[in-house]
Every structure is written in C-alpha cells, then in structure tokens.
Design a protein around this nucleic acid. Structure first.
Lengths: 341, 341
DNA sequence: GTTAGCACTCTTTTATAATGAGTGCTAAAC
DNA sequence: GTTTAGCACTCATTATAAAAGAGTGCTAAC
C-alpha cells in the first residue's frame, strides 16, 4: 500500500486535531472540520489503511484514532509545514537578550525560561561544557585566611573556576603572587591534557620551595576539571507539563520527575544525538523508558565548530511540532550568536 | 476546658496515627492501638472536647478525626518527643561531607540531597547570601579577547564573582595588571557600601588614564553585587512529595509547583522568620496560600553571628515532625561548622 | 471509487442500592 | 462523677445495573 495524497491529508488532519484536542479523533470530525470533500465513510476507509501502515492506532474498538510514534515521525518528516515566529515572539526574545547581563549562567537561565514560556513545555538547557581542549587564560591565587587560599582559574572559554585550598600557615599573599606569576608563565595558553603530561616536572624544578603547596593546587585543579564536566542543566516550565492532559495521571508525573531529578540521565539524553543541528526524538525513539511517550526536541550550540552544549524542549508526543521546532532552532541560533561574542 | 493528661495522650495518639496512615483516625483505633486503658466511648468523649478546643476536626460526620494546624502546633510545642539521629543517619551525613570538595556550590547541593533523602520530603537550601558587609579580598582583571576582559572579584566570604566586560581595543594584559594592582590597593578589605561612597573619586584621580574603563568596571561590579543578591536556591526531592497521598491530587501538585518555580517567592518564604535557629511553620502559619496545607521546617546557618542563608524542608502538614526537626537542626549545625572553616 | 445505512462494540455516564466506618446520645454500670 | 455498652443515625465509598454515546466495519446501492 502506498501513501497517496488523500491519505497524507487525512493523516495530517488527524494529527493536527489530536494535537489540539488530545482526544481520539473520528472520521466524522475529520470530514466536518477539515474540508477534504469526502464523506466520513471514505475517511474511515483511509483510516483503516493508515492503521494498517502503522501511522495511527485505536485505543479501543469504538474510539477514534490516535497517532502512533511512527505517524508523528511521518508528519514531522513529510507533512508538517514549518512555522514562522510571530512578531510578538521575535520581540520577546529580542528584549530578553538586549541590554542584559552577559554572564553565562544568566544567559542559560534566561534561555530556559524563554523556551518553556514560549512553548508551554518543559525546557532543558545545558550550560557550556568545557572540553578538554579549553585552555587556561589566567591563574590567580588569593590568600584568604591563615591557612587557606583560593585558586582561581580563567579559561579561554570565559568560564571561571575557583576552589579553596589549605596552605601552610607561613605562606603570605606575596608568596602566592609569586606562585601565580610562575603558574601563569608556564600554564597559560595550555589545555589540561598538555599540562598533565609535560609541564609538571618543569614547574617542580623551578618551584622547589613551594613544592608541596603546588602539589595540592594542581591536584585540585585537576579534580575541579573532572567535576566540572558534570554540566549543570537548567530545567524550567515543569509546571507547564501538568497542564497537559497526558499528565493528569500522577504516575506519569512521577516517572517523569524521577528522571528529571537525575541530572546524569538528563545529560545523556540531552547529548544523545548523532548530528549537530536540530533533532526530534519521538516517543520510543528516546532510548529511555521513562519518557517513552514524550517527545524531545533538541539542538546544539557551538563555538567555532565545537559543540558547547545543547538545549531542548520536552513535551508529550502530542506536541505542537511545527511551533516547537521553529522555536528551538531559533533559540539555538541565538545562543550561537551570543557565544560568538 | 483544660488539657488534662489523658487529653494530651489522645491528641498525641491521633496525630501519630494520622502521620502514619494519612487516614482520619477513629475512637476505636485509638483505644485498640494505643493502650490508654479506656474504651472507645471514653475516647469519643475526649475527642469531642479536643474538637471543641480546635485541635482536631472531622472531614465529615461519619469520619474519624484529623489534626488541625492548631493541633499540630500544640503537638510540636508540648507533646512531641525529640528524636535522636540513628547511627545510620549519622554515618550517611558523615560520609557525605568527608573528603569531598569544599566548593560552596557542591556543599549546598549535597546538603539539599541529604535533606530530601533523609526526610523524604522536598528540601530547599539557600546558598550563602553575600551581605553588603562582605568585603573585597582581591580583584583581578584578565584580558580575554581584543575587546574583552574579565573582572574577577573574590570576597572574604569565599564567594567568587566574575563578569565579562568590553574594553578598548588597545588595552593589554599589562594595562590590566596595573589596574588590578591599583584596585587591589584601594579596595581590598572594603565593603560595597564604603566603596560606593568614598573611594571612587580617589581612584579616579589616580587612574585618569583608565578612567572610562574604570567606569565600566565599577558599574558592573555594582550591578553584579545587586544581581547576586538573588540567591540561588537548591530544590530537591520533589519526587518524594508525589508519594505523599495528599499530593495524589494533580491540582495540589500544580499549586505547589507554581510556587516552587518562582525563586523569588521561595526566597521570601525561606527567610520569613523572626528568630535565628529552627523554625516550624505549620499550614496557614506560612503566609502563603499555595502552601497552606504544608509545613515548612527551616533553620538558618551563619558565620560569626551573621546569617548567611537558610535551609528547609517542605512537606505536608502531616509531617514526621520529630524526625524532620532533628534532621534540619543537625544539618544546619553542620553547615555552620563547614562555613566556619 | 464513494457513500448511506445499520448493527455492533466498548467506554462513559447516570441512577440506585448496599456496605461500612464512625459518631453522638442515652442509660446502665462502676 | 466517670466510664462504657448499646444503638440509631450520617455520610462517604463501593458495587451493580442500566442507559447513553461515540465510532467503527461492513454491506449494498449509487
């Protein structure tokens, strides 16, 4: 059996109607609301075919049809008409980034808020991950208390990391300045890999006096590096999800929440994609049981061809695909632009 | 009417039973499970009195009794027996802080996780707020790209703030080092208030050359200061709440979530307290409609008598008070200790 | 190929009765 | 005077049955 033009129209109608109403849609509704110029009986025949093709299914004998994951997939790939952002939306976005703090955390938060507000689904935004290729721009040691100092490390990506460390009691700020100077001279411009392998011994030689201290500092820098690879993920608009009829069932909400509270899982999901650019994973296409009746629309943002992180929207499979895809795509572009600065 | 000994015992029994079962508790249950040595009829009489006193109420004529907010209050104030931490719990806490990163963000996260895990309710932990009295320990400017530099500010509280700023194209790292040096000399040890008022002009004189640049930098520092007063709040264990029977109703979950997604509100609630130390706000005692059938147990943590922030647990009014209060109290003490270092 | 007509299926709604937990009151027992 | 057994009463919950409604699939006619 092949998809003819009318089948496509019927499938599109079913999906659009179901997206709107969340109710199984019957032949009569199609024939009345979507002027295909044929009677319910004809629609019924087409529906039977579409069901055989796996695009729609029946919850029970006497109910209308509901799109299957495969049906949505077909819709997204072939039927859906891309949507333009409305002027209102354009403006909302514009005003959200104009004249505001450029601090990375805030940009992430704001992006997440916008995503969930505009789509009415849950948004996930991953903060830029520092790759191992990130290199050190500046290192600074600051004396805090008799036995404590702070190591501050600025990376070329604009990320700033810091860590308190214990130091010997007799160390002064002047000492630390000295160490800072040496570290900067030796390390700045290098990435973590290189530091680990080649530079350490060199520093040791030159810095015999501070050797123990250096040990601690470097180890911590490394640990920090490790730790920071657990990217923070901003989650927003959970509330929106509860307004979706599919989540009126507490069990659903529970399985969803149990997932969203595990940041590690989220990361995997958010990064589980083959290509750059936009990705739509419908229902079981997510390799994750807990969201097997959700759709995730994700996109990556990058700097100089290096993927920094990704943003996404999570909603029921019954999602306003055209709208959401447009929005996610647009927001990812914006992040690209912002990162470029 | 006065509370005699038996009334107290009956009230305690009702509350304990209700906390366990979440079902209205009847006279027979009390008489059987809690060996008060009297018949159901007698209990009924006492219950009628307790109801008149406002400590318990009846959902409907033929149901058992349910504690009122006032009843819980009486229980917490007079009846409840404080609980000890179990060795298991002690150990769990111990191992969570031992040998782990001392970075402030992680401590906050970990504390939140512990709180929700141990109590099975939702936890809220506020990161230390920098008060206006926080003073500058160190300022560092780092050149990033042709027209950008990063301002890094270390406060004596251990907080590190940073911000990218635009600079003139001809400025070099050497210039920035110079500026850093001056800024450090002038500003370190001072708090924001003092800087604002008296020091600026002084700097201007000395730094004529970099004046425009300084303008930007200082303004941003100040903006940063403002912005940072929106404390981050760690929220955890939302999932736990859905296991509580009172949240099997989606509407309840919605009102709760709508609150929890507004960080500003959370801050107010978390800080709305008269005294230091532990605070228990039961039901309507929270000045917040959205959690009028929840109880919040909060405590502050401080450094040198200055309140840095607060931690809390949010659950249904039917909360395991003895346990939760012990845990919150203990965790606050731990944070105090950690901050002291 | 299309469609009107109709019997059939299965969920949802509505109505009605049965069950049961728990109370308040009264009068007797302690 | 306090306690308790006994009992009628209330009201939510559960069970049962019937009715309504939505939608289909099939057949036969157009």
């Amino acid at each position: 059996m092949k998809m003819n033009d009318r089948k496509k129209k019927v499938l599109a109608a079913i999906i659009q109607d179901y997206i709107q109403t969340a109710e199984p849609v019957g032949s009569r509704t199609i024939s009345r609301k979507y002027k295909l110029g044929v009677s319910p009986a004809t629609i019924r025949n087409e529906m039977a075919d579409l069901e055989e093709l796996g695009f729609i299914e029946q919850p029970h004998t006497s109910a209308g049809r509901v799109p299957s994951d495969i049906g949505y997939r077909y819709y997204v790939d072939y039927l859906m008409e891309p949507e333009q952002l409305t002027p209102d939306q354009e403006e909302l976005i514009e005003s959200s980034y104009k004249d505001k703090s450029q601090e990375i955390g805030r940009i992430i938060t704001r992006t997440g808020q916008l995503l969930s507000r505009m789509t009415n689904y849950t948004s996930m935004v991953m903060a830029p991950r520092r790759e191992k290729t990130a290199s050190i721009k500046h290192i600074q040691l600051v004396h805090m208390m008799p036995t404590q100092a702070m190591v501050i490390m600025v990376l070329d990506t604009g990320v700033v990391q810091h860590q308190l460390i214990e130091v010997a009691e007799n160390i002064t700020q002047a000492d630390l300045e000295q160490v800072s100077k040496v570290l900067n001279a030796k390390l700045s411009g290098l990435n973590m890999e290189r530091i680990k392998l080649t530079i350490l011994s060199e520093i040791y030689l030159e810095m015999a006096k501070y050797r123990t201290f250096m040990d601690v500092a470097l180890e911590l820098l490394h640990e920090q590096q490790e730790a920071a690879s657990e990217e923070k993920i901003y989650l927003g608009g959970l509330y929106n999800m509860l307004n979706q009829p599919e989540f009126h069932n507490i069990e659903k909400v529970k399985t969803l929440l149990s997932l969203l509270e595990q940041e590690k899982m989220l990361q995997e999901i958010l990064l589980d994609k083959k290509h750059d650019g936009i990705s739509v994973r419908i229902g079981v296409e997510n390799n994750c049981d807990q969201i097997k009746d959700c759709t995730m629309v994700t996109a990556t943002y990058q700097l100089d061809d290096q993927v920094l992180g990704s943003i996404g929207v999570l909603g029921p499979t019954r999602m306003e695909y055209a709208k959401v895809i447009t929005i996610v795509d647009h927001m990812a572009r914006i992040l690209n632009k912002v990162m470029d600065k």
